[in-house]
Design a protein around this nucleic acid. Sequence first.
DNA 1: ACACATCATGCACACGTTAACAATCCAAAA
DNA 2: TTTTGGATTGTTAACGTGTGCATGATGTGT
Lengths: 335, 335
Amino acid sequence: MNVTIKDIARLAQVSHTTVSRALNDSPLINSETKEKIKQLAQEMGYTPNFSAKSLVMDRSYNIGLFFSTLNTGTSAGFFYETVRGINSVVKDAYNLVVRGIDDYEHYRSIHRKSFDGVIVMSQSAKDDPFLHHLSEAGIPHIVLNRKVEGLKAINILSDDSHGSYRVVNHMIKKGHRRIAIISGKQNFHSTVERRDGFVRALQDAGIELKESYQVGASYDLKSGYTAMLQLLDLPERPTAVFCMNDDMAVGAVKAVHDAGLQVPGDVSVAGFDDSMFSAYLSPALTTVKRPIEEISRQGALVLLESIEQKKLAPDIIYLRTELVVRESVAEPAKA
Amino acid sequence: MNVTIKDIARLAQVSHTTVSRALNDSPLINSETKEKIKQLAQEMGYTPNFSAKSLVMDRSYNIGLFFSTLNTGTSAGFFYETVRGINSVVKDAYNLVVRGIDDYEHYRSIHRKSFDGVIVMSQSAKDDPFLHHLSEAGIPHIVLNRKVEGLKAINILSDDSHGSYRVVNHMIKKGHRRIAIISGKQNFHSTVERRDGFVRALQDAGIELKESYQVGASYDLKSGYTAMLQLLDLPERPTAVFCMNDDMAVGAVKAVHDAGLQVPGDVSVAGFDDSMFSAYLSPALTTVKRPIEEISRQGALVLLESIEQKKLAPDIIYLRTELVVRESVAEPAKA
DNA sequence: ACACATCATGCACACGTTAACAATCCAAAA
DNA sequence: TTTTGGATTGTTAACGTGTGCATGATGTGT
């Protein structure tokens, strides 16, 4: 049997109310008795029963971390860094519950009683019904990684458009004019943003957008591979290829090698994310660092604040991306 | 305000007990009223209050997933696959709470009231005090990835020793005699097992074990890189290097390239795990497939069984590893 | 000396659920 | 007719905690 406040009360010769007040640092208690009870509780190895606490306090002590999906389109590194970032903030004051939004048929079981707050790592507008549900259920929540339109929500995200502008611009400065792009999953916010940066960079340089230089993929290694094969097959193949994430870049580099060509000798390749492994590839990957762990940490902080102090946070926070120049983008071979 | 069974009772003109029975498919109820109540509950959008349920049922509806650490030594892919595997089983019957064991100073807050069951992805004997705590607290638990000695526990793991025996044997058959190993974190169970397979393979082939061919690292990319540099510096450098995981293999390959040498032309390299990216490296990595997602899924199944039906599972389950031959191991250059 | 404020404590109830036990009804058996 | 017993439903308490209100003790100003 576990120790309850009533057990403590009996031994301390006070009512359980007093014990409760002591353990919660209520101002309505003598500081001496408070200390005495606290020490006693410590000795007896008391731990609060969160079920009971939840019931009466109307709180669950659960924080939900929801990904759009845990299956396709979520890379391992991305997932890992997110959980780490949030976990470092949440500690053991809350349970961090990890879920995929697409695991649910209906959201009925997600309500204020089951989650004190929710962090949504959102990829696309497909999540909007879910966000809508959160609003309606009155669950404090923040949205990471995506700017949500229409709904009122706290957003924390990186400036992906700017980031991809810079890599592509870097390619242009190196002398590339035939620049292709391998896109991520359609409808993903990140996909739209990164494409936007790509387009702007080309326009600013006065380079024409070619339809055949834009090929769709799905953020995983394999899709990067096949997309690159497609590009290499073109009559006038690109000299540089921007991949919307590092995973696809790895697949793309593989495709180049398998075609008997070299990176960056024959084709330059860049990625996005700065995954852990990207510095250790051969050639080391030129990419854009996206502060996922930092976004997650900030998000968790803001959420906890808004739960605990009902403080209002600003609508939207942008974190800077950073160009990481390594070896996979070089000057194009002379024509 | 949320709908409770009392609200339903009022509308259905029955007692709340009857409602409770209806919703829990108790045999003590008329099937007509049962259906009527169920339908009413559905219409009213009733969802049970888990805090209340927990309190009286003495269950938390939480399943803990504990990693030895979430920081160093846990690779992103490993983490991702584990969570996916378990999540696919747990569904929304339970909350899956993810934690690092080393986040805790003491385990007081982990008790039967806070977790119905715990899955431990364990790396080393350092986790033993934690496992001991779980036993003592009477929390049903299973240990993945490691055979735990002394303590009674259900174990599910892959036969790493056999796996590494096979890669190393594969190297030997290709004609290598100067074979080195880059180890993972000291004290990790996996490190010991994989080393064991390595040693046996060499012994069976009558190859002498050289101290200088065994270098310690820590399962991350960077440590693989520096370890390989060290090996390349040797007066008589190895012709083949077995890395205890794929991450380190990536680092090692990078080191070879940076030294102006080729894989597998000058040095063959093999890894362990069969991470998602290993097929997409250049050269594609020869490695050992370890069924992490499968281990996790099985583990979750066994745990749920033992929670819900109090059924006893076998002490230890081994899942097979599998040699994956790709390109990074070839015949050694003629001496 | 008295009224009154202040501080510390206890009593009793509430939260939403399950379950042991009691009560009722009706049909079948004696 | 009376008894028995199964089926169905209701009454009540319990789980462990927090809180509004009442109570008692102690001091403070007049």
